[in-house]
């Protein structure tokens, strides 16, 4: 109660401020920045400012995330920034992160900055073990991450021990083997040497092409209970909705592809997935909180929208971006050959 009151007082104090502005800190995967926002700004005003500052045009994959109690939420574009349930202590902090994932990174991520932000986010999720990654894929991914960071392998510059300070593998993977750090480095370096000639963005794209085949890539998981009260996990991703046994986040028990879903709705805590095929039973479940329901529905709407957009073909904006990216790539390749 006291906290809620203090938070409300904080908000009214902020709104009373003569300058009519407040400061926000934006944390991206590779930078931190501070902005002064006007009190009347909506989520979209701040989001657009961040995208412009970062130089990102493929903004539809991203969002501004904030922490709320024990969960996360995303800033709504059409709602005032200060009307969100954010901690009002300045600077108000938001994480600029990918909210939606592409079905195919190579086809859909056009700009280098988009690919780079995805690469950094996915790499962190793998190293933090939020995405399960088998040992052999961890080693191959590490070798592409090293290529992206260090450029071509050069035995005269890259002496043994050059990777000693890098975090390259999930701890779980390291613990599965009786291998010294030197032995791991030797293996990663051997594969790194194979990637000669790959530019940073090519190596990062190879990384994403491998990572996107990992079962947990791009899936948002939520604890739910079915009508019988059984604990289950709901997964929301680019392809649809998936129901998992809580002991197995890799293989769904049932999947509902977006194009086979007629309607998704909730009232209070009860969620209902209505399949297109009327012969298939409506799947009803309860999530833990109303706030979680809102987040699930937001992710469903956004992912469904992107799913449909992909099947309609590229917009003019994306066609232009792709043609610019192709020209830029060709120019860089010419430059490299000349050198």
């Amino acid at each position: 109660m006291a906290r809620a009151l203090a938070s409300r007082m904080g908000l009214s104090a902020l709104k009373r401020k003569q300058t009519k502005s407040f400061s926000v800190r934006i944390v991206t995967m590779d930078a931190e920045m501070e902005f002064s926002c006007e009190v009347k700004w909506k989520g979209k005003d701040l989001f657009d400012l961040v995208c412009r500052t970062v130089g990102l045009r493929e903004s539809w994959f991203f969002g501004l995330q904030y922490n709320i109690k024990d969960t996360v939420a995303w800033l709504k574009m059409d709602k005032k920034v200060l009307d969100h349930d954010v901690c009002k202590e300045e600077p108000i902090t938001f994480n600029f992160l990918a909210k939606f994932y592409p079905e195919n990174a190579e086809e859909e991520l056009v700009q280098e900055i988009t690919q780079h932000l995805f690469f950094l986010q996915v790499k962190k999720e793998i190293l933090d073990e939020e995405i399960y990654c088998p040992p052999e894929a961890s080693v191959l991914l590490a070798s592409y991450a090293v290529q992206a960071k260090y450029g071509d392998y050069d035995p005269t510059a890259h002496k043994p021990g050059f990777l000693a300070r890098e975090e390259l593998l999930p701890k779980r993977v390291i613990n599965l083997y009786q291998m010294t750090p030197e032995m791991w480095e030797e293996r990663i370096a051997a594969w790194y040497a194979e990637h000669r000639g790959r530019t940073r963005d090519e190596a990062e794209m190879e990384y994403l092409k491998i990572a996107q085949d990992l079962e947990m890539y791009g899936v948002n998981y939520f604890f739910i209970r079915n009508k019988k009260g059984t604990s289950l996990l709901l997964g929301v991703d680019a392809l649809g909705l998936h129901i998992y046994d809580p002991q197995n986040k890799l293989t769904p028990k049932i999947s509902f592809p977006w194009n086979e879903i007629r309607n998704i709705s909730y009232s209070d805590k009860e969620f209902a997935i209505k399949p297109l095929d009327k012969k298939i039973e409506v799947f009803k479940f309860n999530s833990s909180k109303l706030r979680v329901n809102k987040l699930i529905l937001q992710l469903c709407i956004g992912n469904h929208d992107l799913f449909m957009r992909r099947r309609r073909g590229d917009s003019l904006e994306v066609q232009q971006m792709k043609s610019q990216a192709r020209e830029e790539k060709a120019r860089k390749q010419m430059e490299r050959q000349r050198l």
Partner: peptide, 27 residues
């Protein structure tokens, strides 16, 4: 979509085999 890990399958198999002799018994 093609087979899982499509063109990387050979590399992944090689890495898996090279790690095998060092696997913990509990692993």
């Amino acid at each position: 979509a093609g087979p899982k890990f499509g063109p990387y399958q050979k590399a992944l198999r090689e890495i898996r085999n090279s790690l095998l002799p060092f696997a913990n018994e509990t692993g």
